[in-house]
């Protein structure tokens, strides 16, 4: 699979469009805590995971749906990149 996808940008765009419409993109930084900050709840996490599975054929495991892997745009992008290799 192609590995040069800019997941940081894709994840950010998706989060802004799906969960934070109308918010200032500059404020959504790569290290902003999404789960602990209340932006990604279980429903949003599920939507996000399924979106990337459908769009990029990346399969995530249940135990990866946690703060360690999904709390920031940076960590989500890192996980997706590692899976896309």
């Amino acid at each position: 699979m192609e590995t040069s996808i800019d997941f940081r940008r894709i994840v950010k765009d998706y989060i802004l469009e799906e969960f934070l419409p109308g918010e200032n993109p500059d404020e959504l930084t790569d290290d902003l805590p999404l789960i602990s900050g209340g932006i990604l709840d279980s429903i949003a996490t599920l939507k996000l995971v399924l979106h990337f599975e459908e769009q990029y054929g990346i399969v995530l495991e249940a135990h990866e749906a946690d703060k360690e892997h999904l709390d920031t745009i940076r960590s989500i992008a890192s996980l997706l990149t590692s899976k896309a290799r």
């Binding site: 279980s42 399924l50 995530l60 249940a62 135990h63 749906a65």
Partner: peptide
């Protein structure tokens, strides 16, 4: 969520 919800929802997706 961690022990029951995600394992179930990922299996049922």
């Amino acid at each position: 969520q961690k022990v029951f919800y995600y394992p179930a929802v990922f299996k049922l997706r």
